[in-house]
C-alpha cells in the first residue's frame, strides 16, 4: 500500500485542490484529510457520513473553587501561565485554570496541597469516516482553540490505513496540514512519498526550503510541484533548481488558472472540469507513479 502526503509549507498554495484531484485520478484510493485545523476536502468531495466519533485527547486541569484555599501553589508551578487569580464574593482569593492556555501537563494537579484540582479528559474534536465518489474518506474537525492536532492527524492516518487494508485499496491520498510543526510531523512519519505544492513567490521559496529540510530530517522521499508557475517563471525555475539540489524530484508545474476557483464554486475537483490546468495535474499524477 502506498501513502502519498500532499503538503505545502505555507498554506493557500492550492494543496487541497491538488490533493482532491489526485484522489479522483487515483480512482480506488482512501482519502484522508489531515488538515484538521481547516479541513476543506469535504467541500469538493461531498462525503456521505458512515460513522462519527468524538476525539478525546489529553486532560485539562479544573480547580474546584469550593476546595481551593487560595494558596497559589498551582499558579507558581504552572509553566504555561494558565492559572489566574480571582477574588471570590467573600473577598477570598481563588485560582482558576484557563482551559485554552492549559497544556494538560498535570503538575498543578499533582502538587496541589488541598487536592482541589480535577483532571478530566478533554474533548478536542471529532473524526468521521465517509463515502465519497472517489472512495472512502477519513476526516476530522478539531474543536476551535483545541490542542493535540498532531494526535488527531495520527489517528486519521491510522484509520485510513486500516480501511485501505480491509478494503484492499492500494493507495492513500492525504491532504496534509500546513507548516512544519507538530501536525505536519505527525502526517509524514512512515508515508511513502511527500508531494510539496509551492508557489513561485519569495515566501513559497523560503517555506519550501524549510519543508524539504523537514522531509530530509525524517528521511522521506519528496517531490515538488510549482503551482501558478507562470505568475513568475524565473522564480519557478529557481525554486525547481533549489528543490532538485535538495534531493527532491520535480513532478511538474500547474499553470495559473481561474478554473481552480471555478471548480470549487461548483463543488467539483479540478480534474472533473474542463479547466486548462487539468492536463498539468494529470502529468503530475503520471509522474508520481504511485
Amino acid at each position: 500500500m502506498k501513502e502519498l502526503v500532499v503538503i505545502s509549507g505555507k498554506g493557500g498554495t492550492g494543496k487541497t485542490s491538488l490533493a482532491a484531484s489526485l484522489a479522483v485520478l487515483a480512482g480506488n484510493a482512501v482519502v484522508a484529510d489531515c488538515d484538521v485545523d481547516a479541513a476543506d476536502l469535504h467541500l469538493v468531495l461531498a462525503p456521505s457520513l458512515r460513522e462519527r466519533h468524538d476525539f478525546l485527547s489529553g486532560n485539562e486541569a479544573v480547580i474546584r473553587a469550593q476546595d481551593c484555599t487560595g494558596c497559589g501553589t498551582c499558579a507558581e508551578l504552572c509553566r504555561f501561565d494558565a492559572i489566574g487569580k480571582e477574588i471570590r464574593a467573600d473577598g477570598a482569593p481563588v485560582f482558576r485554570v484557563d482551559p485554552i492556555a492549559c497544556e494538560g501537563c498535570g503538575v498543578c494537579v499533582r502538587f496541589c496541597p488541598e487536592r482541589a484540582i480535577d483532571f478530566p479528559k478533554s474533548l478536542c474534536g471529532e473524526w468521521m469516516i465517509s463515502d465519497t465518489r472517489c472512495g472512502p474518506m477519513v476526516h476530522a474537525r478539531l474543536k476551535a482553540a483545541a490542542e493535540n492536532s498532531g494526535k488527531l492527524v495520527s489517528l486519521v492516518r491510522r484509520e485510513a490505513r486500516r480501511i485501505a487494508e480491509e478494503e484492499g485499496r492500494p493507495q492513500i491520498v492525504v491532504d496534509g496540514p500546513p507548516g512544519i510543526g507538530c501536525p505536519v510531523i505527525a502526517s509524514l512519519s512512515g508515508a511513502s512519498l511527500v508531494l510539496v505544492v509551492t508557489e513561485p513567490t519569495v515566501s513559497g521559496e523560503h517555506d519550501l526550503e524549510r519543508v524539504l529540510a523537514l522531509a530530509r530530517h525524517f528521511d522521506m522521499p519528496a517531490a515538488v510541484c510549482v503551482n501558478k508557475w507562470d505568475l513568475n517563471p524565473a522564480m519557478a525555475e529557481r525554486i525547481e533548481g533549489r528543490a532538485a539540489a535538495a534531493g527532491a524530484k520535480i513532478s511538474g508545474r500547474v499553470r495559473y488558472d481561474p478554473g481552480v476557483t471555478a471548480a470549487q464554486l461548483q463543488e467539483l475537483t479540478v480534474v472533473e472540469t474542463a479547466a486548462p490546468c487539468v492536463d498539468d495535474i494529470r502529468q503530475i499524477w503520471d509522474h508520481l507513479q504511485l
Binding site: 481547516a38 485554552i100 497544556e103 478539531l142 482553540a145 492536532s149 496540514p177
Partner: peptide
Amino acid sequence: PPGTSCPVITAVR
C-alpha cells in the same frame, strides 16, 4: 500562524 489550534491561540491571546 494560520489555523484554529494551539499556536494561533497563543499568538492571538
